[in-house]
Design a protein around this nucleic acid. Structure first.
Lengths: 183, 183
DNA sequence: CCGGGTTATGCAACTAGTTGCATAAGAGAC
DNA sequence: GTCTCTTATGCAACTAGTTGCATAACCCGG
């Protein structure tokens, strides 16, 4: 139940319209909490109904018109509450690991190509993160907020590094498997 | 849409009843594809209705009686199809990273304790994985199936190692933050 | 023989996320 | 001026996962 809190965070960083939020979820925030524009609009409606955010009064709210939102004090309080409350880590699900385990039973046929493709996708994401790091965290930009945000980005960078390396390892193991295992 | 395939994999490794599957999902399979017993029973019903698995005829199917299932040829074929089909990686969601980003805006108050708790949970999981590795993959146990399963376990071990280290890093950054950031 | 815990199975309702499609305004092409 | 493309907003239906609870048999102590 974190989408509303992801939106509150984004809106506190900068008041935005639904579409602007969608764009930002495609870039930074979405890297660890993805959401589609449909989800975002629905949630904006709920948050407004609950009195946690409000539409900026500047523009008229006609359809096809930008409608920007800002966070109200109640919204900030709710985000602070949620952030500090103890939460259990959610179990993660990874389809690729499951497929590999299945492959041990039904054969590895066809898997190697997708392993290779995933490796490239992770490498691409890693390059993007590094570019963001270069742009947003030059040496010297290390105020408290910068440090926290940089920490989050580092997790992304290190995770993508991990996955590229692990997939390389997996591919090298594949190369050593006897052909019979591949069905 | 991978729960049915997780169940097919588990049943191919060993025919089981719903409860046995639940136990196995709490241990090995569930480490990368978790499921509750309610999900499992529901899915077993669907898989049986689709003709991918069948109840072993040994026991009578009364309530409170063990009912074990085995995979039919159609089920094995479906699992092989799914394993080899190309799939896009799902975007991951990580509430802790989101909370850290929120903390950069609303303050880090209360977060540090949970960071520490998560660090311990990851360390515990890591110890469990290492124990499984010691028990299930002694030197010499390296047939093709073993190699694949070991690869999956290695991902788990390396991920938990990564998270413990990253959380240590995060905690050391917290120690250096000025008190004002902590609200 | 009965009362409480454990094993085993399962339904129903709810919450969260995804997919498909609809609507409307403005911008520029011709 | 109207056609089409892009921007912007949003509803509805569906799929997957979670939570809460119900049922029933067996097992063991007293």
């Amino acid at each position: 139940m974190s989408l509303p809190h992801a939106i509150l965070t984004a809106l506190l960083e900068r008041p935005s319209s639904g579409l602007e939020l969608t764009r930002r979820f495609d870039r930074s925030i979405g890297y660890f909490w993805s959401a589609t524009h449909q989800q975002i609009y629905r949630e904006l409606g709920r948050l407004e109904a609950e009195g946690l955010i409000r539409a900026l009064p500047s523009e008229q709210p006609a359809r096809g018109q930008k409608k920007a939102y800002e966070v109200l004090p109640a919204g900030r309080a709710e985000l602070a509450r949620w952030t500090s409350a103890s939460q259990d880590p959610k179990p993660h699900r990874d389809a690729m690991l499951l497929r590999l385990r299945a492959a041990a039973v039904v054969g590895t046929d066809g898997l190697e190509a997708d392993l290779r493709r995933h490796r490239e996708l992770h490498a691409l994401q890693l390059a993007e993160y590094r570019e963001i790091e270069r742009r947003d965290f030059p040496p010297g930009k290390d105020g408290p907020e910068d440090r926290l945000r940089h920490l989050v980005l580092r997790a992304g960078i290190d995770l993508e590094t991990f996955w590229t390396q692990w997939l390389d390892h997996a591919l090298s193991e594949f190369a050593r498997l006897p052909d019979t295992t591949r069905e």
